[in-house]
Simulated scan of single mutants.
Amino acid sequence: MNDHRPAPAEAASASPAVSSSARRSAEKAAEEAAEVRRFWGRLGLPGLIDVHTHFMPERVLNKVWEYFDARGPLTGGLAWPISYRQREAERAAVLRRFGVRAFTAMLYPHKPGMARWLNDWAAGFARRTPDCLHTATLFPEPGVETYVREAIEAGARVFKAHVQVGAYDPADELLRPAWGVLAEARVPVVIHCGSGPAPGKHTGPGPIARVLARHPRLRLIVAHLGMPEYEDFLGLAERYREIRLDTTMAFTDFTEALAPFPRLALPRLATLGDRVLLGSDFPNIPYPYLHQLRALERLDLGEEWLRAVCHDNAAELFGPA
Rank of each mutant, 00 (worst) to 15 (best):
S20F: 09
M1N: 05
P207H: 12
A151K: 00
D232W: 06
G113H: 06
W65M: 14
L266C: 12
A11K: 14
E90R: 15
S195M: 12
D169E: 13
P320C: 07
G279W: 01
A209K: 10
P283V: 07
Y108S: 13
C132P: 03
V189T: 03
R97D: 06
V18C: 11
G113D: 04
R268W: 06
R101K: 15
Q164R: 15
P6H: 11
A183M: 03
A12E: 09
H311R: 13
G273Q: 10
L45T: 08
D131E: 14
E231A: 11
H202W: 15
R239T: 14
V144Y: 01
P197Y: 05
A34L: 14
R149I: 01
R298T: 05
P112C: 13
A9L: 15
D120S: 14
T255N: 13
H4D: 11
A295W: 04
E32A: 12
V211S: 02
S21W: 13
R87Y: 04
T135F: 03
G124A: 09
E150N: 12
A270P: 03
R263F: 05
L317F: 04
P109A: 10
H54N: 07
Y84F: 09
R71I: 01
P188D: 04
L301M: 13
H110M: 06
M227W: 02
F254I: 06
H134T: 05
H54Q: 07
V276C: 10
D253V: 14
G194F: 00
